[in-house]
Amino acid sequence: MADLIAKTPLTGLLPFATSDLTCSELEFASITSVAPFRGQEEVVSEALKAQIGANFPKPGRTTGRAHARVVWSGRGQALVLGAAVEPIKGAAITDQTDAWACVALDGPGARDVLARLVPLDLRDGVFARGHAARTLIGHMHAVLMRTGPDRYGIMVFRSMARTLAHELKSAMEAVAARG
């Protein structure tokens, strides 16, 4: 069989940088959705903690840290980013590794860039480090998370990678032009 060369969702589109900001692709060894069955939330959370050292997150939150992060991705569902997940009794586990385009937006003014694209209140008191949201970026459904004071993680469906890169570049250029 031919030896195929895998391309990441944003190959050739990122990284992109302005004077203050960088936008780069996040590559995770695996992305797994975990959806506990009704009444199994606690058990699954404990099992996840034992496996990767992070609990199942509450709505609008992340747990864990880089390379073993769990982000809330909807009601009764979370995505495990980085760490591989073995089957957990009481939860539906789905491999989504190649389904998402993931981006890190990093640097002072990252929030100003997102403010042009995201209809959320992103002020520190409302959207702090460790917070996450299902929301819109432009017209795309996205998972947004804040992983540092000036660092955000953005995930969209892989088919929208090019649009995401374009939207972010335009917004970054516009913010940079304001000086």
Binding site: P59, T135, L136
Partner: peptide
């Protein structure tokens, strides 16, 4: 009730 106050666009 789950996400808090959100824009009508969502």
């Amino acid at each position: 009730p789950i996400c808090g106050e959100r824009d009508r666009r969502e």
